[in-house]
């Protein structure tokens, strides 16, 4: 069995081509930043991964809401939610890694307890928990309902985390390590490269989610069919033995 179709193949080829262009442009064509030098090139990977991570979690939340609200196709929406969360956690890990590498070069430290960073970290841990709970339940219907509720609760949690961290930081004035803010003046090519990065990563995201949720659908079917096969085999056994009902 395959999870690919013509559409996903075309999508994949486009994603690869744009990614190749972003790599070439980010490393060779775009200039280094006046202040940050070559470290600015991390931005072409960092900003798109962060965008995808948040897009993934919005997708998870919307799909979970639909899965709970609707009577039909609840499992389908739940599979999309789960696939999107998996990809989101992956991209958020990349966001945190590229971000702290950039921070080391620019701020002089891997990590700062700044509201955006802290919120992202808590979001990451929250969805790691969400994925952990998806792995537990065997029954797809119950798993769908339970994980949808958790995904929606996370939507409540994140603004509260963000708000509390903003309040926390504003009440605790401490000397920041280096006072350069992250702002970069972008020329047209830099902006275009960044934009291409976002497009490329969005296509990769869609490609991954489509494949992942088809795979999940197959494994659900496989479990159901597997059970039927086992039952048929068992029944056949008892008729052969002659002692069965």
């Amino acid at each position: 069995m395959k999870t690919g179709t013509t559409t996903t193949r075309v999508l994949g080829i486009f994603a690869l081509m744009i990614t190749a262009w972003v790599v070439v442009s980010a490393f060779f064509l775009t200039p280094a930043d006046v202040v940050q030098g070559d470290s600015v090139r991390i931005m072409y990977a960092h900003v798109p991964t962060a965008w995808i991570a948040y897009l993934a979690f919005v997708t998870t939340a919307v799909a979970s809401g639909l899965s709970l609200a609707r009577k039909h196709r609840t499992l389908g929406f739940d599979r999309v939610a789960g696939a999107s969360a998996e990809v989101g956690v992956l991209f958020m890990a990349m966001t945190l890694i590229t971000g702290s590498l950039w921070g080391r070069l620019t701020w002089g430290t891997f990590w700062q307890w700044d509201p955006r960073l802290t919120t992202t970290l808590f979001l990451f841990v929250t969805y790691v928990g969400y994925l952990a709970i998806r792995r537990v339940d065997v029954d797809p219907v119950r798993r769908a309902r339970r994980s949808s509720v958790i995904a929606l609760l996370a939507v409540l949690e994140i603004p509260l985390v963000h708000f509390s961290v903003v309040l926390w930081r504003s009440l605790h004035q401490e000397a920041s390590v280096l006072n350069t803010d992250g702002d970069v003046r972008l020329d047209d090519l830099m902006l275009f490269t960044l934009f291409s990065g976002v497009v490329a990563f969005t296509l990769i995201f869609v490609w991954l989610v489509v494949h992942r949720q088809r795979l999940a659908a197959m494994s659900d079917v496989e479990r159901l069919v597997g059970l039927d096969v086992a039952i048929t085999a068992r029944r056949a056994e008892s008729t052969v033995g002659g002692g069965g009902r």
Partner: peptide
């Protein structure tokens, strides 16, 4: 703890 502690952060 994995699920509840991040929610309890605020």
């Amino acid at each position: 703890p994995l699920l509840a502690l991040p929610v309890l952060a605020p």
